[in-house]
Amino acid sequence: MSRDKKTPGIGRREMLLASAALLAFSKLGGLSSPAQATPADVAEAVKKLAGNAAVKPGKVTLDLPEIAENGATVPLKVSVESPMSDKDHVKAIHIFAEGNPRPTVLSVKIGPRAGKAEFSIRIRLAQTQNVQAVAVMNDGQAFGAKKEVKVTAGGC
């Protein structure tokens, strides 16, 4: 009665199968260390958040240090030229870091009540890369700016 002698629970065969599955999973990125986003990931993130509008240059000013010694906390300031009236205002501002594991940094929703389309925050940058700001207007138009930051010590 060999069946009765078999150890209950996970046998050798199942264990092998499970480890093979785990290996496949980790190769797909599930368990691997964070890779940087690909340009396609960034483009897709921009497209998703900018509502498919073509991002035009202008109107957006992105303030970042040229060289960031500590990538864990990089000051960022973004401002958008807009009267911020009921008829003409910035609806959202999105920030993307092209060389980070996850390209979207943050999305801000504002409106005429903001008075001024501007904010500052501190962000993490894993390596030297381009940071991108995209502003979406109430009429659906999108404007963007890009700036390269040289990172001495990455912080992700």
């Binding site: 980070n100 996850r102 943050l106 009540r113 903001a114 904010f119 500052s120 912080g155």
Partner: peptide, 19 residues
């Protein structure tokens, strides 16, 4: 009047300035 969605690239102890 001001809303934000953060992802992983926002620094620890977030500081924000807005209007």
């Amino acid at each position: 009047v001001f809303e934000a969605d953060f992802d992983t690239s926002v620094s620890a102890n977030p500081m924000m300035t807005f209007f």
